Each structure stands twice: as C-alpha cells, then as structure tokens.
Amino acid sequence: MLSEGWYRRRGKRLADVIGAALGLLLLWPLLLGTALAVRLALGRPVLFRQRRAGLGGEPFTLLKFRSMRDGLGDDAARLTPFGRRLRASALDELPQLLNVLRGEMSLVGPRPLPEAYTARYTARQRRRLEVRPGLAGVAQAAGRNGLPWAERLELDARYAEAVTLRTDGRAVAGTFAILLSGRGVHAPGHATMPAFGPAEAEVAEKSRGN
C-alpha cells in the first residue's frame, strides 16, 4: 500500500496548479517566441499532439512544440538541426504546462509514454501509472533519454512508491541540472529514444532480477 500523506493527496496537485499557472503567465513571451520559430522553421502545425498513457493508464493528448518534419522516414531523417536544438533545450515541452493545469500531468512524475507501451509493462513497471506523468522527474534527473529502459522504468516505479515534497524538489533541481549540461537528449546510437518493445521489456525484467 502506498503512503498517502497530505502532500501526495492534496499538496502536490495544489503545487501543480499554482506552478503551471505561474509558468504560463511568466513564460508566455517564450512560448510565443518558440511557436513563431517553429512556424518559420517547420511550418504548420506548430503543436504536436499524441495520445499518451496518464494516471491509471487513462489516455490523454500530450502537447509539444513540433520538432520534426512531416512525412515518412525514421526520427533521424525527420529531425532537423532546429529540432535537435529545440529538443536539447526542452522548450518543446513547455506546452505541457497546459496538460498540468488540466490535471492530465504533474510538474513532477514519470515521463508520459505512448499508450501502446502499457500492455508491455511488467507488474513492477506498471506502478509508474499510479501517479500522474510529469514534466520533470527522477528518471529525467538521472540521465533523461540516455538511460536504458530497465533503469528508467525502475526509477519511475520507485518514485510512485514514495511521493514526497523532498523527492519532487530534488527531481526538479536534477532535471534542470541535466538540461543545462546538455546530456541525455537522445539514447546512444539513436536520434531520440528507441521504442519500448517486448525485447526491451524482457531485458528490463531480467535486469531487475539480477
């Protein structure tokens, strides 16, 4: 049974609403400038929308600034130099402040992953769905996309077991630090992050058992 302290039950959501509202209020010039840059570099649409698994596995529409060209091809072929810089800065994630304000995400939590991944999780990995997905998180702070799936999902499960104000504060500080360092933008040998498939799920489970 997960601990249900005041912060987890009420304080975290209160912090999300206040933080997201202040973020949108203070960062609107940056949001507007980034939207204009995306429009000039990649055209329309400016926003990328994709269904992701949220709290309890319930789907929601994730918002991001678009960083890839339209068309066929893998991520490496469609990711432009502009898009790489946008992803490295994490400015493409700023529209998710709206997801936070709407209650679909939190400021801190596991990164929201595609719905298709949910069926591939082990019972342990599914614990990440017991909390709202977040903008910042312990896995992001530990290495962002540079982490292998096994480590990333285990950190998410551990976070879901013990949500505290201190943990969230450290996750935010660590996420900012890794963004400033420029590390973890993509997995080694990939333009972004390799898909989480059955093979990766098996490796993740074996890794936890060792």
Rank of each mutant, 00 (worst) to 15 (best):
E154I: 02
F176A: 15
G83E: 05
R49D: 00
D74L: 03
F176L: 15
Q96D: 03
V131M: 06
G134N: 02
V203D: 09
P198L: 13
A187E: 10
R78L: 12
E4M: 10
R84K: 15
F82V: 01
V100K: 09
G134H: 07
V38R: 12
Q96F: 09
W149A: 01
A37L: 11
R132W: 09
A41R: 10
R9K: 12
R10S: 07
L153R: 02
L47E: 02
F82S: 03
E58K: 08
A76D: 01
L14S: 06
V185F: 07
L30H: 07
R8Q: 05
E130K: 02
L42M: 11
W6Y: 13
V163I: 04
N145K: 10
P198K: 15
N99Y: 08
T61I: 12
L24D: 04
V17W: 15
G209E: 14
T192L: 09
Y7F: 11
A77T: 13
L32Y: 04
H190Y: 08
A173I: 13
L179C: 05
G109Q: 08
A37F: 06
P133Q: 00
L42H: 06
D92F: 12
T192F: 07
S106W: 10
Q96G: 06
L31N: 12
L98F: 15
L63P: 02
A187T: 11
